[in-house]
Amino acid sequence: MSGQPHTDPVIPRAKVANIANVLTGLRLVLVPVFLIALFAGDGHETPWRVLAFIIFAVAVITDRFDGALARSYGIETDFGRLADPIADKTLVGAALIGLAMLGDLPWWVTIVIMGREVGITALRFAVLRHGVIPASRGGKLKALVQAVAIGLFVLPLSGPWLTGAWVVMWIAVALTVLTGIDYVASAIRDSRGRLAGQ
């Protein structure tokens, strides 16, 4: 037209170094800090357990914010979609293993929940070349209930409060198993759909 070079419109892409991913990284950094507070003293001193709960709660809150920020501001990245669940699993795994080592939670609970989380994370990596499978609503509910259950066990509760914590933990275990089955079923359906489209 006017002799100016033609350029295609550039579609902006979210940078990996954004606030949502920084919050995900912060959650990973808080894991060892949480463990130090959890095991301080003999592992059952009330002030340290309350501090461990506060650190755990802050880490969980960053999980609520990073995803919301990424979606609201259009800064979602493949790194974030992959790193976010890994950060979650690291925090949950550290808490569950720590509580089991202290004798506050049976090892079978830790094994069931972590077995599901490790298995699903491995499945995410296996299907990564076909795209990242986002967390489902059931998975998000499971993560929330797990966080509440673990937080209650981190606190030095007793009596009816501990009974209430166990009720929440049983719900968390049930959701963990059910959403794990659903995730695997979804991955199988997607795989069959890709094969049918080839």
Rank of each mutant, 00 (worst) to 15 (best):
L123T: 07
R129C: 07
R137F: 13
P9A: 11
R13A: 09
L162K: 03
G139T: 12
L99R: 02
L51C: 08
I150R: 03
G3Y: 03
A149Q: 01
V127W: 01
V173H: 15
R129F: 03
V16Y: 03
W108F: 11
F153P: 10
F56V: 11
G197A: 12
P85D: 01
I120T: 00
G131V: 01
I181C: 07
R189L: 01
G138Y: 13
L99Y: 01
D182I: 07
I54A: 06
A126E: 14
D104L: 08
A100M: 05
P9E: 04
P134I: 04
V132H: 04
V154P: 09
R194Q: 04
G164N: 07
L69K: 08
F34G: 05
T7Y: 06
R116V: 01
L141V: 02
R49Y: 12
D66L: 00
T121S: 05
L178Y: 13
P160H: 02
L51F: 05
I61L: 04
V118Y: 11
G139Y: 08
T179G: 11
M101T: 13
G93R: 07
R116Q: 05
L144Y: 14
G41Y: 00
V127Q: 06
G93F: 08
T7M: 06
F53T: 10
R194M: 09
S191H: 10
I75T: 14
A95C: 02
G74P: 05
G93T: 09
F53N: 02
A165L: 08
I133V: 15
G43A: 11
W166A: 14
T90L: 14
T62A: 13
A174Q: 04
D104G: 10
V58M: 08
D42P: 01
V10G: 06
I11A: 10
R27Q: 10
D8C: 14
T110R: 03
S72D: 09
R81P: 00
D84S: 04
S158Y: 06
G119S: 06
G139Q: 06
E76L: 10
D182M: 09
A185G: 12
N18C: 11
L178P: 11
L23G: 07
T179H: 01
I111Y: 10
V22Q: 07
Y73V: 14
M1Q: 14
E76F: 03
M101S: 10
D190L: 13
L28T: 08
R116F: 02
A165C: 09
A17G: 10
L30C: 12
R13Y: 08
A52C: 01
L157Q: 01
S2R: 09
R27I: 09
W161A: 14
A143Y: 07
V132G: 02
T62I: 06
T77P: 08
R116I: 04
A68S: 10
L178R: 09
L195E: 14
L102I: 04
A122W: 12
G25L: 01
I75Y: 15
A100P: 15
S72Q: 12
W166R: 04
T121Y: 04
G67K: 04
V132N: 02
A20N: 07
V16S: 05
I55N: 00
